[in-house]
Design a protein around this nucleic acid. Structure first.
Length: 452
RNA sequence: UCCCCGGUAGCUCAGCUGGUAGAGCAGGUGACUGUUAAUCACCCUGUCGGCGGUUCGAAUCCGUCCCGGGGAGCCA
């Protein structure tokens, strides 16, 4: 019976005959037999196969196996007499499915830089670290769905192509066809682009179904070259009707803790790899985040604390400025040393859809900052009052005619509602400790880089 | 996009103030071995990122472009 290595190692049954299919990591020869380490991606660990000279193809094939070859092996699971593994597979048959020329196969049994691996994105998931990232990412993605589904949220597939810009979310990629552009027209009859956020459309469904979420790809045509930005990334955006800012923050904190608890319980082996080689102390840090309450301060308090700190910031602090990276880092990494929720930002620096507070100068916004990453979540209570929303749009120089559909939500049965956006890759970065965001998405797209 | 740093063998890097290149690993061959980043011996490997300039002579100095890294801006 063909089995995944993860399943074999989770519940080893010595004496069982079984079949594995995977890729050779390395081969070591002893007298009369060879050790073949095979991995199949189901887990970090490989299984050690003992292939001896009684195999029909031992001399012709087995002794020529090298890293990257694909094999189908039938054998009997036995206790391993040596240290390093509890069980091993004594091969009865080794079938080579695909060879990998050792002269040109790019992966070696040694450390490779992530920069190098990025240039062979077709091979890099075969490495320990990138394979582990893929498994953790998958588990987190599934966890996002279970978190919301368990709470009765409805998933909404918001459009990838849109004609509405979500203000403050950055530049849009344009979408048209060569023939439409040639004729001076637009395929959709008006300028269209790839979505920068599903929020506005999610609001539509929230005001029909209550609690909804969207989780999909998002695109930003910014010329950003940093370890925290991608031109194509995935975003989790819940939108909740009859929900105010405190309720919004509660869901956000609960969601982050749920997801961390999930991977701490189910991705232990992979996280241990990151803890050991990528970010020392990672497991302790994640555990701490799960156990502590997030710190809460208002923007105004944050400004006061930054002013009192007497730190020589490059950007001087003053009420009304947007908090810079150095400020956010100082708050979450030095003062609080844990996740921090900053609320009630000045209205002037936030988008039109955020709800204006009674003081008239702040909005019901919240950002969650985490050590090492900075902003991981941004959200707000949305402006539900038609007049206020319209005034804010005009103030921001937005032509309301393109947003009649959005204004309709405030004309007909408008309700208080809130939501937030979580940068999924930043979550994966936080959980894995990977320094560069390009390593936590299978095929990163950045300015000048999209090889396949 | 801005600032700083870098680009040398398949990979990771060394190469001082200019004198036309090295190490480890990988790969090949052989030996040895219940091995596990195996060990030992021998062998192979280069448009020194591209273009232009200075110089008798450039991996090394200058200019420029491309690419990467760190930081910043924009944001998630």
């Amino acid at each position: 019976m063909k089995k995944r290595i993860a399943n074999i190692l989770a519940l080893p049954q010595v004496g069982e005959q079984l079949q594995i299919a995977g890729w050779v990591r390395t081969r070591r020869d002893a007298s009369g037999f060879s050790f073949i380490e095979v991995g199949d991606g189901s887990c970090l660990a490989n299984i050690q196969v003992i292939a001896d000279q009684t195999l029909a193809n031992y001399g012709d094939e087995v002794k020529k196996l090298s890293a990257g070859c694909s094999v189908l092996i039938t054998g009997i699971l036995q206790e391993s007499p040596a240290k390093g593994q509890a069980v091993e597979l004594r091969a009865l048959e080794v079938q080579v499915l695909g060879w990998a020329d050792p002269e040109s196969y790019p992966l070696q049994k040694k450390h490779h830089s992530f920069e190098f691996l990025r240039n062979i994105s077709q091979m890099r998931p075969r490495t320990n670290a990138l394979g582990a990232v893929a498994r953790v990412r998958s588990r987190l993605s599934y966890g996002v769905h279970t978190f919301f589904q368990e709470r009765g949220f409805i998933q909404v597939h918001t459009p990838i192509i849109t004609t509405s810009d979500c203000e403050g979310a950055g530049e849009m990629f344009q979408v048209t066809t060569p023939s439409a552009a040639e004729g001076g027209g637009e395929f959709f009859g008006r300028p269209a682009g790839l979505t920068v956020s599903g929020q506005l459309q999610a609001e539509v469904y929230a005001q029909a179904l209550g609690d909804v979420y969207t989780f999909g790809p998002t695109f930003r045509a910014e010329n950003s070259n940093t370890s925290r930005h991608l031109a194509e990334f995935w975003m989790v955006e819940p939108e909740m009707a009859f929900c105010d800012l405190p309720g919004n923050m509660e869901v956000a904190e609960e969601m982050l803790k749920y997801l961390l608890r999930l991977v701490l319980a189910e991705c232990r082996e992979d996280l241990a790899l990151f803890d050991r080689f990528i970010a020392k102390g990672l497991l302790a840090k994640l555990q701490q985040v799960v156990e502590q309450d997030f710190a809460h301060i208002t923007y105004t308090e944050a400004v006061e604390q930054l002013l009192q700190s007497n730190q020589p910031f490059t950007y001087p602090v003053q009420w009304g400025i947007d908090l810079q990276s150095e400020h956010e880092r100082y708050l979450t990494e030095t003062i609080y040393q844990r996740p921090l929720i900053v609320t009630d930002y000045p209205a002037a620096i936030k988008p039109f859809y955020m709800r204006v507070s009674d003081d008239g100068r702040t909005v019901a916004a919240m950002d969650i900052l985490v050590p090492g990453i900075g902003e991981i979540i941004g959200g707000s209570q949305r402006e539900e009052r038609y007049d206020v929303l319209l005034a804010r749009m005009l103030e921001a120089g937005i032509e309301p005619s393109g947003y009649e559909w959005y204004l309709d939500l405030r004309r007909y049965g408008s309700v208080p509602h809130s939501g937030f956006g979580l940068g999924f890759e930043r979550l994966v970065q936080f959980v894995t400790g990977m320094a560069n965001i390009r390593e936590v998405i299978p095929f990163p797209r950045t300015p000048g880089f999209a090889p396949c």
